Amino acid sequence: MTLIQRYLFRQITRPVAAACAALAGIGILSQSLDQLEIIVERGQSVWVMLKLTLLAVPQLLAVILPIGLFVGALIALTRLQREQELTAVFASGVTRWAAIRPAIRLAAIVAVLTLLITTIVQPWAQRTARTEAFAIRSDIAALLVEEGEFVEGPDGLTVYVQQIEQSGLLKNLFIYLPDGDDATTWDAAEARFERIDGAPMLTMLNGSTTRYSSRGVLTYGSFDRNVFDLSPYIDATERPRFKPSDLYLTQLFDPAPQDVGTVGSRGELTAEGHARLSAPLYALMAMAMALAAIMGGQFSRTGYSLRIAKAAAAFLVVRVVGYGIVAGSAWNGWLNILQYLLPIVATAIALRLLFRALKPRRSRRVKRALKAQAA
């Protein structure tokens, strides 16, 4: 790129990056508020909430990048046009195509980045988040322990903990377990949840156990260390259930038999695959519409509010219709081709408006003069 093109590239890239960052920040804030349940109800750490929030970012970026590109490009091009920097660029001998090339290059970069996110990063992050969320929901420690309250679990198992320290150490633990007409209780000064050979265990220290049988026999004993097996109270057959957004492209277009029906129908999986491949086209469409809104007409000292409003409305309509086509493609496979045609046609129309504006136009007076000379 020439010096002027590098300047234009920087001037457009900065607002685009700022717009994408602002939208991503709003999305991350929304996700973090949704994840507060993990801390409040599940007793998880702030790090777990932060991890799940960050794992949701790739899916957000796939939606945010075209929008941020459109908004940032409009801001940058409007400023360049209003301050007559584009006029100075053209006056220096730079052709309009050379001036547009940095914007097109930026759109291509965003399109490639979107493709990488939708095909590689997003499914990995979604699968990791789904597995992590499943582990939290099935965490027997989080389900059975609530500070200062009696919590009843499976098979009548009841647990009480007076205090839970930040390190996970349980203080003054009490466990009650009925067994038909019999009942057993444990109490310990300290306890901690652990995994031994992959099995969930509760290690109790400095405690006692009491067993009452239906025959009226009471048995009491003390211990320095006792390990309570929690495996019988966990359904080991449960597995995390994935969604189409969690699968890679190879799994979407050639799903395994167990994926069809459990994750989604074959039509839903195929529609998801085509939606990911067509997502980068919306980045190209966003830049084409932004260029057409600012440079697709006559220079105006009063601003370009009307043209920007029309471009924004067109972008919004096309994107919403695109989501509708994705939903319809799950039931009608032939609609998948529209997932590609819609952004391509919208881009072509925007470029057509831009091309027409770039061509020199003859005024009516010049045309009448040329007709008179020809006559």
Rank of each mutant, 00 (worst) to 15 (best):
A290W: 05
I38P: 00
G261A: 11
M289K: 06
I294A: 01
V48S: 05
L33A: 11
R368K: 15
A312V: 12
E146C: 08
K359M: 06
R225L: 13
G153L: 02
L157E: 09
L341G: 03
Q11T: 12
T250A: 09
T262N: 14
S45R: 14
T95G: 06
A107E: 05
W331F: 11
L3H: 13
A346F: 07
L341A: 14
W47C: 05
E272H: 15
T185I: 12
D246P: 00
T209E: 09
E85V: 10
P154C: 03
A283W: 05
R96A: 07
A283Y: 04
V57L: 12
A18D: 01
G303A: 14
Y7A: 07
F150M: 05
A374H: 09
L269P: 04
I26P: 01
R101W: 09
I140H: 00
A88C: 08
A350W: 13
P232M: 12
G216E: 01
G303I: 15
I337C: 10
A275D: 05
A108K: 01
V112W: 05
Q298M: 10
T237F: 10
I12L: 04
K171G: 01
L316C: 14
E41L: 11
V159I: 15
A22F: 08
S92D: 04
L77V: 06
N226E: 06
T128L: 15
E146I: 14
T250G: 04
D197T: 10
